[in-house]
Nucleic acid binder design. Structure first.
Lengths: 251, 251
DNA sequence: CTTGACCCTGACGCGACGTCAGGCCGCAGC
DNA sequence: GCTGCGGCCTGACGTCGCGTCAGGGTCAAG
């Protein structure tokens, strides 16, 4: 199939398909001698996934990493999409309820407080991220604790927590810069501080959990990006330090 | 309240409020001596409306025209939002169903046709516009006819229809330019052609309906914009011609 | 062998902000 | 009184996901 047909079938414009091709999100599996894009059924499959994730609000770059993850087979995507769609359903229902509440209030001559009226917008920002996080960690004790504690935090609390975190990260970066070994006493000390910070602010972070986190810093691109954004090599450095510290206490 | 507080309450960034101020969508009702934005409760009300419409996918400019329409009291907005949210609910449910269908198909080893898989995306483009249109005309016979006929149209059909329409509109513009009276024989002839075109291509357009359409050309800004984009004064001209033609046949 | 629909690749534009940069408030603490 | 330090201000440029030409090749039908 050529672009026009695919566009008509999927309900997108040709330009959109060009765009997806250029950014590498969906490149047709073939071209004719004249350079015409040729889409295979597999390409259509992928397009379908792309459109679903897009509809759910994912930035295209993230859609690409999701779909290119070789450890995620189609069933994983379907389950995730199902969950995200149900989240959206709940959210929409909440908004419907809010509007109905307001209509009723109006008809009774009452007026709602600003807090009441904005609450449906308030904590939903991470529609997709929250869903993903819950998929990974939902149901665990740590997750529940974290949810409960962070919900109670004020803006000042957040700023304090962020300052603490920034501090430790900066000292990690300094250690890396100065050539301090990642599995040495100093770096392990920082790792321990890091662990205690998490325990204080989010959830009881034991050594095994901390070691798991450490692994994620080099495996999950979002964490990796965070640390590499501070200093190149920092993700690996922190990961090593955290795991060394865990090993020391664990065994 | 100053920007920061409003932003925190509504779950948006300060930058967003700056933006809404600059484009005139939501300008705080006051400023302090130092130039600090001061938001009143009424401003918060408006912000709430803005965020709801935004969430529903309306471009900000359109949100502004909706909210600035003096003929639309708060209740109108609430009803519209309620309808749009319910549309979204239905649509999301359809998508959930589609994903479930696909999961089942996969588990049975069957695979769906491309058409089946994309159909949920297909005809939904005008989430909001379609909803608005249906709100106005839904349930009428003309609406149903139009829906049925346009669904059956191929791309070529659309092009042909568009060419026809463009032709009549160009002749209307020429008449206007040449100073031909809008309620004269020539202009009424064009109006009659216009009416028959609609009847052929969309729905049985009698004289009363046509007269109603004519009124809309000067009352609904979208129609007005369309005609004024062709030639200044054309909206009024066509409107007059159409109504004169209807009056001639009606009485 | 032309015509008209369809395809290609730039390249610029746009909406709705994000993200600095440079500088002015406002109030707490010394 | 001064000095931070967070919050606010106004530009101004960057980003994302395309829309929209411009200039030109391709292909099936007549």
């Amino acid at each position: 199939m050529n672009v026009g047909e695919v566009a008509a079938l999927a309900g997108v414009t040709v330009r959109t398909l060009h765009h997806y091709d250029r950014i590498g999100l969906l490149s047709p599996s073939g071209r004719t001698a004249a350079g015409y894009r040729q889409y295979s059924p597999a390409d259509l499959d992928r397009l379908h996934q792309v459109l679903l994730y897009r509809e759910l609000g994912f930035p295209l770059e993230e859609v690409a990493t999701l779909l290119d993850d070789p450890s995620a087979d189609p069933a994983v995507h379907l389950r995730r999409q199902h969950r995200l769609l149900q989240d959206r359903l709940e959210r929409t229902q909440a908004m419907v309820a809010a509007v109905e509440k307001e209509m009723e209030a109006r008809s009774m001559g009452i007026s709602l407080t600003p807090e009441e009226r904005f609450e449906v917008f308030g904590d939903w920002l991470p529609e997709e991220y929250a869903a993903e996080a819950e998929e990974k960690w939902g149901g665990t004790e740590a997750w529940a604790q974290s949810q409960q504690r962070t919900r109670a935090m004020t803006k000042d609390d957040w700023l304090r927590v962020k300052a603490e975190t920034d501090d430790v990260e900066a000292r990690f970066a300094a250690a890396l810069r100065d050539g301090v070994p990642a599995d040495g006493e100093t770096a392990m000390g920082l790792a321990e501080e890091h662990r205690q910070q998490i325990s204080r602010n989010f959830y009881d972070c034991g050594y095994e959990i901390h070691a798991g986190l450490g692994r994620m810093y080099v495996e999950d691109e979002r964490f990796t990006a965070h640390y590499e954004g501070i200093a190149p090599g920092l993700a690996q450095y922190v990961s090593t330090a955290v795991q060394a510290n865990a090993a020391r206490h664990g065994g």
